[in-house]
Amino acid sequence: MYPLRLFLKYFQLTLKVTLQYKFDRVLIAAAVMIREMAGVIILILMLNRFVMIKGWQIDEILFLYSFLFLSYSLFVFFFTGIRDFEDLVYSGEFDRFLVRPVGILFQVIASKVDYTAALGHGVLGIILLQKTASQLGIEWTASGILFYILMLLGGALIQASIFMIASTFCFWTVRTTNLRNMLFFNSRKIAAYPLSFYPGLIQKFLIYVIPFGFVNYFPAQYFLKKPEMNEFWSGFMFLNPVVAAVLFALVCLVWNYGLKHYSSTGNALY
């Protein structure tokens, strides 16, 4: 169980670093949570005069939202190193990983955890899920719970893939963090609301280009069973793990190719 032991050791250290600045980190986590909550509050304020919009209750939209928060929390818990990959490469820390007898991706993933973001998004996600699920009377059967967890993992992996494809560019010393943030966070912003609110072109974008639709909209249909799902292929509802697995596998291939390129060209910044 070497990998697990090593992972736990890294986990212990990253946690220790975070706990060093307890006050500071708790404040940041709270700030992140409040920032993310703004979206929810605005939605509630906007809709408090209307019972339904386009057939959606407010709780249903917030339920949709909860997927985003929880899967992002999971993503950031496991993949902070991928999110901050540019720093890792440009600071030269990445070269250190190459001289250790452990898998490179493993080190990237294990060596950094942004607990503040994980906590901020996670707590908000759980609150939202708990509130909306009981309001909507969602029955938590064993298979339902399993499905929800599977969808969260898939969602985290889809988001990781988006970040990882951007991080691959670092191997060519091309900076894409800006572009990535632009695509990722704007897509996320759009995905906060039902896809049916948007024109077809944007729907297609969130299905085929930046597949955020599979992070929340389609999986949520399993629980909400909205009639508008008829406009899409019903298989989309279950496609999240497939999209996640295929995407992540592809991205890993590209990443490994980039890694090879990196070791043959070197970090040209030095």
Partner: peptide, 10 residues
């Protein structure tokens, strides 16, 4: 860096 395996020789 080459000797330590970080870089590949041309």
């Amino acid at each position: 860096k080459i000797l330590s395996g970080v870089l590949k020789p041309t």
